[in-house]
């Protein structure tokens, strides 16, 4: 079977973590892959430089869904600086992969591109 669909990816894609919306977010970050129809809206509650809470919602493929889910877990409770600097390499490591097919890279990067809005 396809190497891409590791158990951890199927697990997050099937049961996305932190899915939903926050009542009083301090940041709402939107990003989309127009050509695939994927979109994500991440909401962060940042207090004292820390990501106190995070929720996200969106539609997308298994890769982008798993990626959003895992990113939300990674940044929750961490300093905002960590969320801003989250890299593709680290995310791939969390997924147990060294690299991703070039055609699916944009799916993986969707939540990271959303987080980049924090720095703008």
């Amino acid at each position: 079977m396809s190497d891409l669909y590791q158990e951890i990816i199927l697990n997050h894609a099937g049961n996305p973590r932190n899915f939903g919306t926050l009542t009083h977010p301090t940041h709402t970050l939107k990003e989309a892959n127009a050509s695939c129809g994927d979109m994500v809206e991440m909401q962060l509650l940042v207090k004292n430089g820390k990501v106190q809470d995070v929720k996200w919602r969106g539609v997308g493929c298994a890769i982008s869904t798993a990626s959003c889910s895992m990113v939300s877990e990674l940044i929750k409770g961490k300093p905002i600086a960590f969320a801003k600097k989250l890299t593709e390499k680290l995310l791939l490591k969390e997924m147990g992969m060294n690299a991703i097919l070039p055609t699916r890279e944009k799916c993986l990067l969707l939540p990271l591109r959303a987080l980049q809005h924090l720095s703008q």
């Binding site: 079977m1 669909y5 050509s35 695939c36 493929c61 298994a62």
Partner: peptide, 26 residues
């Protein structure tokens, strides 16, 4: 319940080439 890109990816692993996405008709 399964995104077209994921369908295409699984088919690709079987050697089948299909198109997935909007096909330029958004």
């Amino acid at each position: 319940g399964v995104h077209a890109h994921d369908v295409a990816q699984i088919l690709d692993s079987e050697g089948i080439a299909v198109r997935s996405g909007h096909h330029c008709t958004m």
